[in-house]
């Protein structure tokens, strides 16, 4: 265990150096989320109303947070695919190190980056009028849900990177996934207007569960449209869906890593 921690720390140090040396990466995790908050908050906010006269900017913040957590898929997938392509994975696998260390090093550092994004977005959110109304503990609990989602997405990204292998293809797949998962959810629009079957899909989408969970924990406007479990108990559903997904994806990624070959 101590050795695993040492390995993960060494690898995390490597990823942190990347962040410092590749300005695009730092911009990706700081400026991009800020732009999203401003665009969604002002552009959509000027045209949309939340049922029950809620504040759209308060409504949308949880959606933007999850969107950024979701984008960790692409970051992790690209990083893993790059390491495969240039032979680093072969080198790591020939070392007497813990078999989980490389993927943990990757996902933990990518998670740290998404946490940084959260801090930046929360600051901008506060500036444009977003507030969490239920005290420090519940506010932090909301961020805990977001980070659980982010961690799950990092592992999913690692799996995609290991299976797809080509850094170019990885980008396409990650952005393709954004469509159904990030948009077929309650992130940006209430689900009332959707056909029933789409509503059910959107409700059970882990993204929706995390969004609703955050809204509940932060006391932001929420739009519950059904009596289904995800709508009634969003925090529980979020924990459940993310937990199950992580429990499936993490072992699959480890398996793929142990069989990984550069070509």
């Amino acid at each position: 265990m101590g050795e695993l921690v040492d390995d993960v720390m060494a690898l995390t140090g490597r990823h942190m150096r990347h962040i410092l040396r590749v300005p695009e990466k730092l911009i990706g995790v700081t400026i991009a989320p800020v732009v999203m908050v401003l665009i969604f908050g002002y552009l959509f906010g000027s045209a949309m109303t939340v049922p029950g006269n809620g504040n759209y900017r308060e409504y949308i913040m949880a959606g933007i947070f999850t969107m950024v957590m979701f984008s960790a898929i692409g970051t992790s997938a690209a990083g893993v695919a790059d390491d495969l392509k240039n032979g680093l994975v072969d080198r790591f696998r020939s070392l007497p190190m813990s078999r989980y260390a490389v993927l943990l090093g990757r996902t933990v550092s990518d998670l740290a980056m998404t946490a940084l994004s959260c801090v930046v977005m929360a600051a901008v959110g506060l500036l444009i009028g977003w507030r969490a109304h239920h005290g420090l503990l519940k506010t932090l609990a909301g961020f805990g849900l977001l980070l659980l989602l982010g961690f799950t997405m990092c592992w999913l990204g690692a799996l995609i990177g290991l299976v797809v292998r080509s850094p170019e293809a990885v980008n396409t797949i990650a952005s393709l996934m954004t469509m159904p998962f990030a948009f077929l959810s309650n992130s940006f629009v209430p689900l009332d207007g959707l056909p029933r079957w789409m509503q059910i899909m959107a409700e059970w989408n882990p993204i929706s569960a995390v969004v609703s969970g955050c809204r509940e924990l932060w006391g932001n406007p929420s739009t519950t449209v059904s009596d289904a479990l995800p709508a009634q108990h969003p925090v529980l559903t979020a924990l459940l869906t993310c937990g199950v997904l992580l429990a499936v994806v993490a072992p699959l990624s480890s398996r793929a890593y142990n069989r990984a070959a550069a070509h």
């Binding site: 050795e3 040492d6 390995d7 060494a10 690898l11 140090g13 490597r14 080198r91 790591f92 070392l95 007497p96 190190m97 260390a101």
Partner: peptide, 8 residues
């Protein structure tokens, strides 16, 4: 140094 650390 990284590889050395991973070699313990």
């Amino acid at each position: 140094t990284l590889i050395g650390r991973l070699y313990r």
